[in-house]
Design a protein around this nucleic acid. Structure first.
Ligand SMILES: [Mn+2]
Ligand SMILES: [Mn+2]
Ligand SMILES: [Mn+2]
Ligand SMILES: [Mn+2]
Lengths: 219, 219
DNA sequence: AATACTATTTAGATTTGTCTAAATTATATT
DNA sequence: AATATAATTTAGACAAATCTAAATAGTATT
């Protein structure tokens, strides 16, 4: 079966939103894809026809097993291209999402697998997200905690829960990247901000809004 | 101005077909893009509107200066990706055209220029065709002769005038690649076939149809 | 239970890119 | 010059993907 770019974007969005939750709402997809609910309903009918989703009027959407298989392929392509851009073409992690959003639609299995090999079969992308293998097996996103909820003092950045380039640019400016080691100096209860320190830098404070998006593991 | 994939494919086709000739015909484009003349007429109106081509009913099509600029960008992207696929992902020259046909539409200047740098700013693609630089400057396709018209006995393969994978696969099977050195053993007038020999191989004969597509330079 | 609000779907349009069949224009042949 | 053939354009249609505005269904609040 050959999917259009639009269909692939919808499948990927549904896959992402379905994580944990049982069904995905029309509005959630529309918001995620920056489109209108009416368009989502239209597409839902098409994807149901193709047996990629289960969908009944007003009942929300879930991927079928086949839809999930496609989703994992697309996610694999997306994340491998992100690795390529960062590792080989020296892009920074805030610049790669948009480009990978286009590259992911080039449908050649041979290309993806060769690319993966060329990159050394990486298992996580530049944002710390796991990359499905050729069979669609993906290691669970590790049990990470967001920085605002972490308990230990010495932490390592292992991911971000928001891919927006505004956030990623901000983190880059503050010197926060994947693998960056963070020391928590102080937590302020009144606004839930955190004062942190990065090696060779003076300490600074980040807001709760930001610390919520930084996923860390303790060292 | 932002071009759609379809518009880019038309612009590239017109650019290719215009080489030498003054104007390009509706039918030639339709044949090249495997579409119908009526569709070409429709698209011609759109591209004229966007000032990328000069076009008057029944008078044929030529690119404007702006159209040519776009064409060179697309050709650059196409050929750089072909280099990437062959040099970095070990594809053979007959496998890359279709994939590059999709990759060429990813429109990020930064991506193209980083890719070019990563590849060592190559000046010819895996088929011997020149790659325009970031400014759209492209060295003229060298003055090559097709094998059926070559006069000297010792030749080197420098390109092919047909990108079809059936031809490229055939050449690969015969051991003919870019840079392959060929010795002409005999030319047969009755069918214009040529007997040739490649280093470390026994001699074999190729038809006029094939020898016409092999572009060579003398050693 | 009636009302208000939110979520979702439908109806009807639009844009892009394509097609077939018919009409028109250009070119070649007698 | 008349006719045949080839090239091109037009008319009218369709599928994909989207939208706005209106209708309907579901949920929450009084
Ligand atoms: Mn995408
Ligand atoms: Mn990512
Ligand atoms: Mn293309
Ligand atoms: Mn090429």
């Amino acid at each position: 079966m050959n999917l259009t770019n639009a269909e692939e974007n919808y499948i990927k969005s549904i896959f992402k939103l379905q994580d944990g939750t049982s069904v995905v709402s029309t509005n959630a997809i529309a918001y995620d894809l920056d489109t209108k609910p009416a368009s989502v309903t239209d597409m839902a009918k098409k994807l149901k026809e193709k047996k990629l989703i289960d969908y009944e009027k007003y009942q929300g959407i879930t991927l079928t097993a086949e839809g999930r298989r496609f989703a994992l392929q697309i996610v694999r392509r997306h994340r491998l291209w992100e690795c390529f851009l960062v590792d080989k073409l020296s892009f920074s992690w805030d610049e790669v999402h948009e480009i990978a959003e286009e590259l992911e639609h080039v449908k050649s299995e041979k290309l993806v697998n060769r690319l993966s090999e060329f990159l050394g079969n990486p298992t996580t992308d530049p944002h710390g997200d796991p990359i499905p293998d050729a069979q669609g097996k993906m290691s669970k996103s590790k049990q990470l905690v967001s920085l605002d909820k972490a308990t230990s003092k010495r932490l390592e950045v292992a991911g971000v829960s928001d891919q927006s380039s505004s956030l990623l640019e901000f983190l880059k400016a503050k010197g926060i990247r994947l693998g960056t080691q963070i020391e928590v100096i102080e937590r302020y209860d009144f606004d839930n901000s955190v004062e942190i320190k990065i090696k060779n830098q003076s300490a600074f404070t980040i807001s709760e809004q930001v610390s919520k998006t930084i996923m860390v593991k303790s060292l």
